[in-house]
Design a protein around this nucleic acid. Structure first.
Lengths: 213, 213
DNA sequence: CGTCGAATTGACTATATAGTCGAACTGACT
DNA sequence: AGTCAGTTCGACTATATAGTCAATTCGACG
């Protein structure tokens, strides 16, 4: 009976614990959109999250640990945006193009997310690995002008990051994701007849969506 | 007579003043290559520069002022790298290509400079203005696939920044500047027969190039 | 080698931050 | 109403940082 009690207690605690933890992580995420991790203070976090300092240390050992948690949450949002299409789409370049567009649309519609991503210089490591895998496949198929996977990844990530940064400072035109993607594909040396149909379809569909506010 | 004395004194002081100021700025520059401005402390600066805290405040009103000074110094290095060619080269795309390559070579040969530039997210404002001017000219001449100057600038800056960041994490291949430039030109939609001679000539010393390895 | 203005020093105060800890609280269960 | 593990609180200590200022040093000059 003591056994059951303990398990039950733990479960109850876990729910409360999760709520507060999420609260803290969200506050940290918001703050990290405006300042680098090195400048993030515990005081600022607890004030923003509306909890006591002791509560923070009950959930995290240090600020670094919170930063890591925010990073993990950010990585999740990336995965969620493209998880389905990665399974459905078999063409490497189409996969990459879809992700590129999808991420950019997300950046435009969610500036906080964009600021956070742009700040964390190198995008979540997992994403780059996926990108490199797609690019390596495309290179193996002889569809890219570049032979160097790392360089190709830098080109795509670089264009994406800077264009996303641009959307934070200037208003984005409706076809910006499409335009940026075209530039990235040209940079990679993808022939015009390849890898642009799905992207174009997406861009068309979303145009009315965005315009409808 | 008092007049002459005062002027002379001031001049003497200025020399000493300049020496120490440079010392502090250099220390700040080094620190800013490893950490964001928001995390830069006066204590760290004075320790690294080997001066007393009071000395720092004798030269600068705040850390922000020092950061600005470092930014100005960084901007100067950019100008120095391309000042001559800007006057000599009349073709807009050639100008841009030269600067792109030159900056990347600098980043490869001077990692501290590269880290500093990559950290200060948006490259010194003056450089972007020059780039936009060149791109606007090229667009007016109908030589680019993109009509949007801001987007074109983001593409070039984005590729450059990410490739430069890559050189900090991986060893740069000899023809990386040339390869990256080619990608940027493709991204902009510059026809193959245009704007590549000067670049090719520059990369020539490392040549027999693309197929190598 | 004494003078004097400019530059430098480091101790000092006030404030901010990191991290700790005992006490108080919560809510499911009895 | 009482119990109790888990959770939350906020006061507290120790350390770090920003910014000030009177005292000291520097060095060209007569």
């Amino acid at each position: 009976m003591a056994k059951i009690d303990l398990a039950r207690r733990a479960e109850i605690g876990r729910e409360k614990r999760v709520r507060t933890r999420v609260q803290i992580v969200d506050a940290g995420l918001l703050l990290l959109a405006d300042q680098p991790p090195e400048a993030l203070t515990v005081n600022a976090i607890v004030e923003s999250a509306g909890v006591a300092k002791g509560t923070f240390y009950y959930h995290f050992q240090s600020v670094e640990e919170l930063v890591a948690a925010v990073g993990a949450k950010l990585a999740d949002t990336f995965d969620e945006l493209v998880a389905r299409s990665r399974l459905e789409q078999s063409d490497s370049i189409e996969r990459m193009a879809f992700a590129f567009t999808r991420f950019l649309e997300k950046a435009i519609s969610d500036p906080v997310w964009a600021r956070l991503v742009v700040r964390s210089a190198q995008a979540p490591a997992g994403i780059r690995e996926h990108l490199k895998a797609d690019l390596a496949e495309a290179i193996a198929e002889g569809r890219l002008a570049t032979e160097d996977v790392e360089l190709a990844a830098d080109i795509v990530v670089g264009i994406w990051t800077q264009v996303a940064r641009g959307t934070l400072e200037r208003r984005a035109t409706p076809d910006l994701p499409h335009q940026a993607l075209q530039a990235a594909l040209r940079a990679l040396g993808v022939p015009r007849t390849q890898g642009r149909h799905a992207a174009a379809a997406r861009a068309g569909r979303n145009k009315s969506q965005i315009g409808s506010k």
